[in-house]
Amino acid sequence: MTHTLPFSQVDVFTTGPVLGNPLAVVHDADGLTDEEMAAFARWTNLSETTFLLSPANPGADYRVRIFTTSGELPFAGHPTLGSAHAWLESGGVPAAAHGRADVVQECGAGLVTVRRSPAPGGGARLAFAAPPLVRTGVPSSAELERACAALRIAPGDVVDATWLVNGPEWLGLRLRDAAAVLAVEPDLAALAGVSVGVVGPWGDSPGAPGDADVEVRAFADDREDPVTGSLNAGLGQWLAGTVLPPSYVASQGTALQRRGRVHVELDADGQVWVGGATTTTVRGTLAL
């Protein structure tokens, strides 16, 4: 049986096309099997592909399934924002009970709230409520040494380190500054099976972009990810309001000639929000 379904590709965490992290979104996907979803995600060869379905939870506006080229994730950041953008753009209307026109997304990690707020220059910025970290803690000496060896840095270059697990299992490393982050030249093959995120402040460093407070890089699945919502969510829960201001902007993708900007905010209730601009770059239909 051939399925003909609406399809869109969304660029996430950037104000201009082809400068953020792309996401493939398949709409009205209730009729697809697990195998068809996995096969299409492998074919797109993007970091993630999502499928929009009818919600199973009455508190949700829609349900999303998130696939990488190798399996399914319970939660991921840029697929959350890109999926919400695609759902709204296709005519989705949030339930009035959610308040403030918030969108409630159902995924493998449960319900995730996505809020809309005015963006400078017009339009709206989407931000998701960072889900609770299911595991934190200082990595073992062996774990830290392996990560540092793969990044080709010395353990002494790491100011602080912790696990940040919110679906994806990130090992977060804080380096002395943004220049140290951009200088990392990883051995990606040596990182197989480990997801590592590095962050460093820009401060008054020469070459600071002016619209970002920190530089972030993410390495997972033998590749560098352009702009990463789940990692930035974990970093915000770790650093916002302590090492970093309660509200800050992360630059990511610089090393890949992208221009990702992730807005992180710790609100008065202790909730971390992770947001950015989203734009559709491809619209059409999928025959599968």
Rank of each mutant, 00 (worst) to 15 (best):
G234Y: 00
P245T: 09
G91E: 08
W163S: 10
V262N: 04
G203P: 04
S251E: 15
I66W: 00
R125E: 15
L126Q: 05
S54K: 15
H3V: 04
L175C: 03
E265R: 15
I153P: 10
E215Y: 01
E48H: 02
T281K: 06
D221Q: 14
R115V: 09
A218Y: 11
R42S: 11
H263Q: 13
A178P: 07
L288A: 12
V10I: 14
V25S: 00
F40I: 12
D30Y: 00
D187P: 04
G270K: 02
T49N: 01
V196Y: 00
F67G: 05
S205W: 11
G284N: 06
N232H: 06
R174W: 08
G193M: 06
E185G: 13
L23H: 00
W273T: 06
V103E: 03
L175H: 02
V199N: 00
W238P: 06
R176T: 14
V114G: 07
Q252V: 09
A29H: 00
G16I: 14
G203A: 04
A180N: 09
G110S: 07
L164F: 08
M37K: 10
R65D: 03
P120L: 13
L191I: 04
S141A: 15
L19W: 11
A178M: 03
P186G: 06
P155T: 08
T281S: 12
D225L: 07
W170I: 08
T4V: 15
T136E: 13
T80Q: 02
P94C: 03
A189L: 13
C148I: 09
T80Y: 01
P17R: 02
L286F: 04
D211I: 09
N232M: 05
L244Q: 12
G31S: 04
T162G: 11
V274Q: 03
H263K: 12
A127E: 07
W273E: 08
A179Y: 02
F67N: 07
P206Y: 08
D225C: 05
R152D: 12
